[in-house]
Design a protein around this nucleic acid. Sequence first.
DNA 1: CCAAAACTGGACTGTCAAGTCCAATCGTGC
DNA 2: GCACGATTGGACTTGACAGTCCAGTTTTGG
Lengths: 217, 217
Amino acid sequence: MDIGKTKRTSPSTTARGHATRLRIVQAAAELVAARGVDATTLEDVMQASRTSKSQIYHYFADKEALMCAVVKAQSDRVLELQSGCLSGVRSLEGLRQWRNEVVSLSRARHGVGGCPIGSLASALADRSEDARALLVASFRRWESQLARSLEQMQARGALRPSARPGDLATAVVSALQGGLLLAQTTRSTRPLELALDMALAYVAAHSTEDLPTGVAS
Amino acid sequence: MDIGKTKRTSPSTTARGHATRLRIVQAAAELVAARGVDATTLEDVMQASRTSKSQIYHYFADKEALMCAVVKAQSDRVLELQSGCLSGVRSLEGLRQWRNEVVSLSRARHGVGGCPIGSLASALADRSEDARALLVASFRRWESQLARSLEQMQARGALRPSARPGDLATAVVSALQGGLLLAQTTRSTRPLELALDMALAYVAAHSTEDLPTGVAS
DNA sequence: CCAAAACTGGACTGTCAAGTCCAATCGTGC
DNA sequence: GCACGATTGGACTTGACAGTCCAGTTTTGG
């Protein structure tokens, strides 16, 4: 059975080695988020993490394996960031706050970089089966987090019984990804705002609260 | 003033030259759609288009200029494809047909490749200002096409006067892009279907027709 | 027909980046 | 302190790919 590029090159690791590995992955994650997968060379990573080539190849079989580690790291980072405002969502109002947070983050960077996970997905999904599997898991975790919040709303009667939290979550994440891609391209938050307002309205349409149709703009 | 990478290397072109240029761009567009920008080398393009290096550099200043031409070509191709079922949209039912078309196309490729324009956007938006400008224009044309149909619906009273066709179009395209990205990653049409159903429901929410809330699945 | 310009073939260069290798050092258990 | 594996430095190899160059061919315009 294929273990996948996730496997360590070395089986055991000391504390120092673990720290080195961490430095490598974090530096790589930052560079990749800023420049993209292909524009990031191992030399860049070496320099940014103050390591040597043998260190990188001691911990990763090849660049693909390193990129898989980057996917994991970015997923953890984004998920943790999101869990702050996303799993805290208890109402439509909470969702709107999350929307505003996301828009603010995008505005701060003028859309540049887009979504760290989305960019990785576009760059790796068709090129590395291992990375793709990790990205699928990442999106699933993301959706689950949102779905749990929606389920709780449903349990409290805020969402109709007919609503499907899992499907809603997938739709919301899609809108987010699409909005971020357009925001990255146009360097404007407007598409992101419109996409998320649509998503909010969609959730609202499944709620028992009454919201005016024109949530947007 | 900057003319941008769009400019020809040569000012005038004969019929034969024009044909050669076309062969190059089309071959490049296909390869890029299949493998991505970075995984497509000029050697690949030469082979696929049966041309030589000097021919490529006769018509394009560098690879970036060629990629800009690819963006234009893909935009035209996709827009023309979409205009068939998109500008023909006269009602919510027409939109639903469009949705089904898009899902079918994605299913046929198991999501691989995602959206040709979306992939180009993710790969080039932060790397080439010229390409980004073309991509912005491409998305704008796409949205305009959809917006025009929505405006006509509005003129016929099918959409409420308060609805904003332009904003709706942007939201729909965002949902499409996000759905295609997730479909590409998960190799499933499900996220795309959910995203587009959300978009349809959003448009329906601004219509005067009455649609059941649970359009989705 | 004849120049000039458009076009083409294909070898060549320079660079850069992934991956290899080995010797040296560090750290831990015994 | 010793052995052994983990760790590290950094030079080296290999291959690939963007871009250059020039000589040759075709086409155009007059």
